[in-house]
C-alpha cells in the first residue's frame, strides 16, 4: 500500500496532465487545473513527466503513509503538517511509515498539489490517470477520495536524492484575491454589442460559489447581445447559437449576467455564444482563485498569448533544471 485516507478534505482527486486527444468524443481533458504547481511538484520529487498527483481543493485531507515516501506540496498556501508539525511547501520532504500528513486552513490560492515520488498508482483510463467525476472514470474509482481509501504509490525513480531540494523563492507564485486573466477575444464574440464587450473588459468580476473543475462563474455586470433574427437551428434565446465546440478556457455568458470560464472537466460543446478564451498560461492563475475573489479580463493578441506560453515553458524548464 502507500497512502491511507483518514479524512478526504473537501475535494481531493487524482490528476495528471490530462486525457488529451479525445475531445471529439465529448471527453474533456480533466487533469490538474494548475499545471504549473502540479508539474513543479513532480520535478521536486524527481518524477517522470505526467506522474499522477493529488489535487487538493480549499480544505485539505488527512493522509497516513503506510510506507516511507518522498513528497512535495505545491500550489495554494495551505500549510502542510507532518504529525502535527508544520512543514514547508515547494520543498521535497521525506515521510516515514505511519506518518500523518494534514493541512492547515487555506491562506491563499485554492488548490494544492501533493506529489509523491513514483506517482499515485491508479489504473490508466484512456491513457490518463486523471479523475473525471461527472461520469465516474479515471483516477481512484472515478471519484474524489473518501475516508478509508487506500492508494498505491508507484516505483520511485530518484525520490531519495531529491529530499531537501527547494524551489527558488523567485519562482514561487503569490496568489492574490485580485487576478487579471488574459483573454483572446473571438469565437462568437460578434454576438455581444460593442458596449457590452467594453463592459466585459472593464468590469471587475466576482467569483461566485459556482467555481469548480467544470468552470468558474462570475457576477458583476450585465452584457447584451446584438439583436438578430435567430438563425436556423439555434433556438430562440439571444444567447443561443447553433451548438458548437467550446475550447478549454472559453467564456460564455448565458442570460447575459453570469460569464462562465470553462475549465478542465467542462462540457465540450453546446449552444451558448462564446466570446473569447483565457490563454493557456493564465489557466493556472484562474485555478488558484476562489469564491468572492475579484477577476478582470484583459484582451491580448495571439502573439502575446504565445509569448506568455513560451515564458511559462522556459520558467518551468529553469525550475526543472535547478531541481534535478
Amino acid at each position: 500500500m502507500g497512502i491511507r485516507v483518514k479524512s478526504p478534505g473537501l475535494l481531493t482527486t487524482v490528476q495528471d496532465t490530462g486525457r488529451f486527444g479525445e475531445y471529439a468524443l465529448g471527453m474533456p481533458p480533466s487533469g490538474a487545473m494548475d499545471v504549473f504547481s502540479y508539474q513543479v511538484g513532480n520535478y521536486l520529487v524527481g518524477n517522470e513527466e505526467g506522474a499522477a498527483s493529488l489535487e487538493i481543493t480549499y480544505f485539505g485531507p488527512e493522509l497516513e503513509f503506510t510506507e516511507g515516501a518522498v513528497i512535495a506540496v505545491t500550489g495554494a498556501e495551505m500549510p502542510p503538517k507532518i504529525n502535527g508539525e508544520e512543514a514547508p511547501t515547494w520543498e521535497t520532504l521525506e515521510v516515514g511509515e505511519g506518518d500523518v500528513l494534514s493541512f492547515d486552513y487555506l491562506k491563499s490560492g485554492a488548490r494544492s498539489y501533493l506529489a509523491v515520488a513514483g506517482g499515485i498508482d491508479v489504473p490508466l483510463f484512456m491513457h490518463s490517470r486523471s479523475t473525471y467525476t461527472l461520469i465516474g472514470l479515471g483516477g481512484h474509482e472515478g471519484r474524489a477520495l473518501q475516508e478509508g481509501d487506500e492508494l498505491k504509490i508507484g516505483e520511485s525513480r530518484n525520490g531519495g536524492g531529491q529530499v531537501g531540494k527547494r524551489v527558488d523563492d523567485d519562482h514561487i507564485p503569490a496568489y492574490s484575491r485580485e487576478t487579471e486573466l488574459r483573454v483572446i477575444i473571438g469565437l462568437a464574440s460578434y454576438r455581444l454589442t460593442e458596449e457590452s464587450m467594453e463592459e466585459f473588459l472593464n468590469t471587475t468580476w466576482t467569483v461566485t460559489p459556482d467555481a469548480d473543475r467544470v468552470g468558474y462563474r462570475y457576477r458583476g455586470g450585465e452584457l447584451k447581445f446584438v439583436e438578430r433574427e435567430q438563425p436556423a437551428g439555434a433556438g430562440s434565446d439571444p444567447a443561443n447559437v447553433v451548438d458548437f465546440g467550446y475550447p478549454i478556457g472559453s467564456i460564455q455568458v448565458p442570460g447575459g449576467v453570469e460569464p462562465i470560464v470553462l475549465m478542465n472537466d467542462a462540457v465540450t460543446g453546446g449552444g451558448y455564444a462564446t466570446i473569447g478564451t483565457v490563454i493557456s498560461a493564465d489557466r493556472d492563475k484562474l485555478a488558484q482563485t476562489k469564491t468572492n475573489d475579484k477577476t478582470r479580463f484583459r484582451s491580448v493578441d495571439l502573439d502575446e498569448a504565445l509569448k506568455a506560453r513560451k515564458d511559462r515553458g522556459e520558467q518551468m524548464e529553469e525550475i526543472k533544471g535547478s531541481l534535478t
Binding site: 473571438g186 469565437l187 438563425p231 465546440g245 475550447p247 478549454i248 478556457g249 478564451t277 493557456s280
Partner: peptide, 19 residues
C-alpha cells in the same frame, strides 16, 4: 469565420445558421 480559441484552439464557424 476563423478565430483563435486562446493559443491552443482554432475555431471555424462556417455559418451562423444550421443546414
Amino acid at each position: 469565420r476563423y478565430s483563435y480559441g486562446g493559443d491552443e484552439f482554432v475555431f471555424v464557424e462556417l455559418s451562423e445558421a444550421m443546414s
